[in-house]
Design a protein around this nucleic acid. Sequence first.
DNA 1: AACATAGTGTAGCGCATGCTACAAAATAAA
DNA 2: TTTATTTTGTAGCATGCGCTACACTATGTT
Lengths: 192, 192
Amino acid sequence: MAGRQKQYDEQQALDRAIDVFWEKGYEHASSRDLQAAMGIGKGSFYLAFKDGKQELFLKSMERFFVLHPRPLLDALRTSAAPLDIIRQYYYALADAQGPFHRFGCYYANTLTQTEDECLKTAARHYIRQVADAFTLALLRAPNAAASLARLAPELWPVYFTTLWTGLNATRLLEHDPARLRQLIDFQLRLFE
Amino acid sequence: MAGRQKQYDEQQALDRAIDVFWEKGYEHASSRDLQAAMGIGKGSFYLAFKDGKQELFLKSMERFFVLHPRPLLDALRTSAAPLDIIRQYYYALADAQGPFHRFGCYYANTLTQTEDECLKTAARHYIRQVADAFTLALLRAPNAAASLARLAPELWPVYFTTLWTGLNATRLLEHDPARLRQLIDFQLRLFE
DNA sequence: AACATAGTGTAGCGCATGCTACAAAATAAA
DNA sequence: TTTATTTTGTAGCATGCGCTACACTATGTT
């Protein structure tokens, strides 16, 4: 392996790109915006990401999953009270001020903001991961039987997803976080 | 009133603009796209809509409301079974194939796809109109008391909105309309 | 007929976009 | 030291964007 060595940390640069993509959305984040935030120039940018912005965004979605949903999913796997963890996650989305999800859901935004089928497919994948994990966690909860009697389990993922993506839009309408939290509490009562 | 007379029908042109905006979204509908669909040139376009694309879209949102939500709201005001009407409206959004809402919700799309505060404020306004009308209609329904006991009425608009905007995104994930209809049925059981 | 007014068609400006081309610089292997 | 390889910085292309400028045409008023 010969050649000059990179003057930037790839992962750090990816994290900075996430900041820009999250705030502005895929389409509105220009390659120049991204390069500035990542602290690199065009040359390095198109060397590291040969397919440009799209490739960077795909990698940023993977990285985002490691940073945010994965720790949650890991916690869910071992928790005795998964519902409380899930509730806090929904709260974070409803709470526009919070440090997480200040700009909404990274993946749901992608789903509604771009027409790129490749990116939408990836976003779908990550959202499904979370919804399926929620379903599995609550199926293992002590009071699962009661919940099952109310709603068939194959509808649980679509139930979570609709609530999640709904909140992602409704938070732009209803600015009172308390009311959104009340709605979340009501919807999650299904699993109590 | 002197001067040459218009060679196109303003309302027809507006309807064509809606087609383009609905399919492509505000940002992705270029002024040239719109002019072509409306059958007019730059000159007529910027004479009729001095503030350009933004003004056209604002007017298209008003026109859209007259075309689609208003008839629904009128029907709700007099119906003895408002829940059935509401259910069909949700079905139409879930059913990606249907003639209406083939490209999702005109207003919810605006809310998540653009950063223009002026347009978002207008979109919020129209969505609220519908959610409030749903609430009023169901409060007048014969079995309103039972529904009230389950969920406080001030949460009804946010309940409708979250389901609506949620479906608007979930339809991009879950392509089986039957499953979405099952979810709608379950959510609307609150008002039975 | 003369004039003012409203609508139409065309040329093109200034800007931002994603991306390529390519020379210069740095590093490891020979 | 030479060579091959990798990274970096800069110049700039082609395209599409929203929009303006302006001459031209059609119409109503005087």
